[in-house]
Nucleic acid binder design. Structure first.
Lengths: 236, 236
DNA sequence: CGTGCTATTGAGGCGCATCAATCATAGTGG
DNA sequence: CCACTATGATTGATGCGCCTCAATAGCACG
C-alpha cells in the first residue's frame, strides 16, 4: 500500500476513492540520490514534496558551518502542505539516503483538500503530529543527556517507520551517518559514536552499516522516556 | 488596539468588521495571576486561549522533575487553533507573569474562520510563524552556546512584543525568573545568571527585576545571529 | 521580624567537544 | 586483480563549558 495512504488512514477511515487519489500523488515519483537538496533555503516552492521511500530532512546551517536538522521526512510524509502560503523558505530540505519522491503542485493539493474533507482532516492531523514532534525535539535537545537523546531519536524513527511498514519489531534500515545523527541531536559525531557503542554494549540496540537492530525495545524506550502518543494525536 | 488585531493585521489587511469581531474575542477576558496552569497535560480542551496581556508558555515536565518550556504565548497569541482536533493534550499551558486571557470556544473560532476568509488566512500565517519559531528553538538549544541562546531568546521576545506594542527599542517588561529562562534555553539557572551578568558587563543588555533594558540592540542581534524573518513568513 | 522566593557568587566536577590518529569499507581507474 | 582514494567509523587524549552543590544576599510579604 502507498505509504501516504497507510499513514493518513491511521487518522481516520478513507474511502476507496480517496485512497486511490492519494496513491495517485506518487505517480510521477522520481529517484533522488542521497545528500541532495530537494528545496533550498530562500527558494519559493510551487509544489509540495512527497516522500515515498527513503529518508529526507529539513535542516539549516549556521554561519559557523554547523548544521541542525529540525525534522525527518519519512515515507508518507508530505513537505509541506502550507508552504503554499509562504514566500522564501528559511530552511532547506534534503535527502539523506537516496529517496523516491514526488512533487505535488499546489493546485493539486488544494483541489484534494476541498474535494475530500476526510483527506483534509487527515492532513491536518498529520500536521499536528509534526508540530508535536518538533516540540518533542525541543525537549530532547533541551533537557536530555546524550544517550537519552540518541535513544529517543531511534525510538521515534522506529515508531514512525513502523506506521508505514518500513520497520519491524527487530529494527529498520536507516541510511544516516553518525554525523547526521549528531546534527540532529546537537552532539558531536564522536560522542554519538561513543553513545552507540554504549548502547551496543548494553545489548539494547546495534546501529551500524545503515541498519538499526533493536535488541531490547523496552530498554531503549525506558532510556529515552519514550511516549509514542505525541506521534498520534488522539482524535476528539 | 487589541493585540490580536494588531498581530493579525501584519499578515494582511483586515476589514473594519473583521477587526471588530477579532477585538470582540477578548470581551470576556479575565485576569489570571502568575504561575497558574491554563490548560493541563492530559486535559481535553473545548476552547482556545487568547492572551491579551502578560506572558504565558507551553511546557512539559520530565519524570526527573526538570521542565522544558517549548513556546511563549504573548499578547495576541491564540493557543491553540487546532486543539479542537485533539484529544488529550500532551503538554501544559501556564501563565508566567500575571495575564489577561480570554477563552474562545471552538464554535466561535470555527464560525470566525468560515465567515471571514481574511481572518482564517491570517490565523494560518500566524500558525506558520509559530512553527518556524519552534524550529528556531530547536536550532537554539541544539547548536548555540549559552550566551547565544539567551541573546536569541531576548531578541525574539523583543521582536514579538514590538509587533503588538508591548516593547520599544529601549526594552520591555518581562515577568520571568532566571529559572524560567533556564527552562527555556536548556541551561541551569546559575549559568543563566552568569550569562546575564556577562551581557550586562558587555553593555549589551540589562535583565533584572522583570525588565529587559536593551543597551545595544545591534550587538545583541549579532551575538544571537538573530534573523527576524522567521517570525514573519513572507506572503507569496 | 521572620519566611520564602529569587538573584548572585564561589568551588569543584562531569559531560561532552575538539583535535588527531587509526581502521574499515566501498568505489575507482590502472 | 591491486593500488589509490574518499568517506565514515572508531578510539584516545585533552580541555572547556556548563552543571551541581552550597552559601550568601536582596527583596517582598505577612
Amino acid at each position: 500500500m502507498h505509504p501516504i495512504v497507510r499513514k493518513l488512514a491511521a487518522y481516520g477511515p478513507l474511502a476507496p476513492e480517496e485512497q486511490a487519489v492519494l496513491a495517485g500523488l506518487g505517480a510521477g515519483a522520481q529517484l533522488v540520490e542521497g545528500r541532495l537538496d530537494l528545496l533550498s533555503e530562500g527558494c519559493v516552492p510551487d509544489s509540495a514534496v512527497l516522500v515515498l521511500e527513503g529518508v529526507a530532512c529539513r535542516y539549516r546551517h549556521r554561519r559557523t558551518g554547523t548544521r541542525q536538522i529540525t525534522a525527518y521526512l519519512l515515507p508518507g510524509d508530505l513537505c509541506d502542505l502550507d508552504f503554499v502560503h509562504l514566500g522564501r523558505l528559511n530552511h532547506s530540505v534534503a535527502t539523506l539516503g537516496s529517496c523516491r519522491v514526488a512533487r505535488v503542485p499546489r493546485e493539486v493539493l488544494a483541489g484534494l483538500t476541498t474535494q475530500y474533507p476526510a483527506v483534509a482532516r487527515a492532513l491536518r492531523l498529520a500536521k499536528l503530529a509534526e508540530e508535536e514532534t518538533t516540540r518533542e525535539w525541543v525537549m530532547n535537545v533541551g533537557c536530555r543527556s546524550a544517550i537519552e537523546r540518541v535513544s529517543h531519536l531511534l525510538c521515534e524513527l522506529h515508531e514512525r517507520l513502523r506506521a508505514v511498514g518500513w520497520a519491524t519489531k527487530a529494527g529498520y534500515d536507516l541510511p544516516l551517518t553518525q554525523q547526521d545523527l549528531a546534527d540532529t541531536t546537537g552532539l558531536s559525531n564522536v560522542h554519538v559514536n561513543r553513545v552507540l557503542r554504549q548502547l551496543r554494549l548494553m545489548r539494547v540496540v546495534e546501529v551500524g552499516g545503515k541498519r538499526v537492530d533493536i535488541l531490547n525495545l523496552a530498554a531503549l524506550q525506558e532510556i529515552a522516556e519514550f511516549q509514542a502518543d505525541y506521534l498520534r494525536p488522539a482524535v476528539a
